[in-house]
Amino acid sequence: ARPATAGRLGADATAPLRLRSVAVTDLATTMATQLDDAQVSLKPRGFSLGAIQVNAKVLLQDAGAVQLIDADTARDLKQDVLSDVKFQFIPEKPADAADGPRAPDVLQLTESAARRVLTSVGLVLEASVGPHALNPAVAPGQAMVQSPTAGSVIARGARVMVIFAAADEQGA
């Protein structure tokens, strides 16, 4: 098979495109399988994936196939030759979490306060430190991000990952 040329797609006729054709159903199945694998690997740690949406620009073909192109090629094409595709994956609610506690909101708490709150409802804190720029609204040492989010029903004994703001670096 010879590669398609950009001239047929509305760009410079001398630049060859790097295209990969794939059936839409195969693309969706591959993404779903990879997300399922990630979900299985996160479950023992007390985490789960939420709804995931994938948006892409593709070249549509007949018979339910699309051509995936690299970012450089996409920039060189006229935008009216590309189509938007959207895949949304919504995981099933885990059966074992139905009777568990709701994750409390620990944002803006210190690590020791977050640990006390989580322990009081039967959950475990998994703490890490991240750059304060993730959430400049909090003070250094306070919780910036938590997963699962506040209000999520999770299994008793599950881990709640919380990222605390690092101390600001001087001269940054």
Rank of each mutant, 00 (worst) to 15 (best):
S112F: 00
V81D: 00
L134I: 05
G50C: 14
D26G: 05
A28M: 05
G64N: 12
I52M: 02
V124S: 15
T149Q: 11
T30A: 11
A65R: 14
Q108N: 12
D84Q: 11
L27S: 02
E126I: 09
A165V: 02
L17Q: 13
L125Q: 10
K93G: 11
V40S: 04
V81I: 09
A6K: 02
A97V: 14
M31E: 08
A158T: 01
R45T: 02
E126M: 15
V162K: 01
P101R: 03
E169P: 04
V22S: 00
L19Y: 00
A165Y: 10
T149I: 07
G100F: 07
T29Q: 04
H132S: 08
A23S: 04
Q79T: 10
V66A: 11
L107V: 13
G100C: 02
G10C: 15
A98E: 01
A114I: 04
A65P: 09
Q170P: 00
G141S: 01
R102I: 01
D99F: 04
I154D: 12
A172T: 00
I154S: 00
P131D: 09
A167Y: 00
P3M: 10
M31I: 13
L17K: 12
M161D: 05
G64S: 11
A172V: 02
M161W: 08
G7N: 14
G130Q: 09
